[in-house]
Design a binder for these strands. Structure first.
Lengths: 152, 152
DNA sequence: AGTGAAGTGGGGAATTGTGGGTAAAAGTGT
DNA sequence: ACACTTTTACCCACAATTCCCCACTTCACT
């Protein structure tokens, strides 16, 4: 499973290096086949090893075409999913469309998130992080139940 | 199976390039025989490899003629279905009727959608995408079941 | 400081996407 | 059946993107 934080730079060609500590696992687990798509929840990207993505795709395939929300979910998640493989330097090329969506420019943040990675624009990440830290640390604001039950 | 996003331009003759990454698969799986028809749900087009279309056509044949909705679906999808083959540059010619239906002009979006492709007018696609992203990103609104069920 | 690995940048070749010219084919009307 | 127009098919050429490779810098560890 993936965890951890990295800050790598996107070059002018739209390439981004996968942190080296994940590379062996990706090579073994997914034969270097990765799938990148958008994260609709917060304007970042998700990067899955192929086998993990296949699970998602199977679930997507079961969604009804006649329910509009379901259809859109299917279209978006599958439609923006692109295969990619690291080059000999361990970098992946991020499709232009996704680069634009996540507003990736110079610095990108790569977060290990269990079965996948999240790739953020650095400023967006910092902003979200600080906003969240502020709200959780604020004792006067309500803590969601899902968090209250969590013992860290 | 097909996935991924491409934005290609339709030229003045109504030709549209199939993204090259799919071409080999189409050549092997369908011997370059494709079937294009309308997508009655979204004002876009569906493009099937012949073998996949055959499956659809069988399903359509089982629909009752006495249910109006079913009859119309059958009529539309079969009626507008036309065979096409990529030319030596990997482009297909989209019948004028279908071009008009999907309002394809300059830029078209091609989405890999499992067993088929969807072809959209770019603006129409962007509008649908933004609407969906808006509804998903709205924290005050409930997350659609279609997304929840994925446990992404 | 030295060594090796990781990250970054860029040159150049190959592939892909785009546009147009021209000839064959199909459709239309008299 | 004929001439005429429109559409389609095939070809070539340019432009943009992507891929593959090499080289440099930086960082971590000894």
């Amino acid at each position: 499973m993936f965890r951890g934080f990295s800050k790598n730079s996107m070059d002018s060609k739209g390439r981004l290096a996968i942190p080296s500590r994940y590379r062996d696992l990706i090579a073994v687990q997914a034969e270097n086949n990765l799938v990148i798509t958008l994260n609709p929840l917060d304007h970042s990207l998700w990067l899955y090893p192929q086998p993990e993505w296949d699970v998602i795709e199977d679930k997507l395939a079961t969604l009804s075409d006649f329910d509009k929300q379901s259809r859109r979910t299917k279209q978006m998640m599958r439609g923006y999913a692109s295969d990619c493989q690291p080059d000999s330097q361990g970098r992946i090329l991020i499709p232009k469309e996704l680069r634009v969506y996540a507003e990736l420019d110079k610095q990108a943040v790569i977060l290990g998130q269990g079965n996948k990675f999240e790739i953020w624009n650095e400023q967006a990440w910092v902003a979200q992080r600080d906003a969240w830290l502020g709200s959780v640390g604020d004792d006067s604001a309500p803590t969601p139940e899902s968090l209250q039950s969590l013992s860290l």
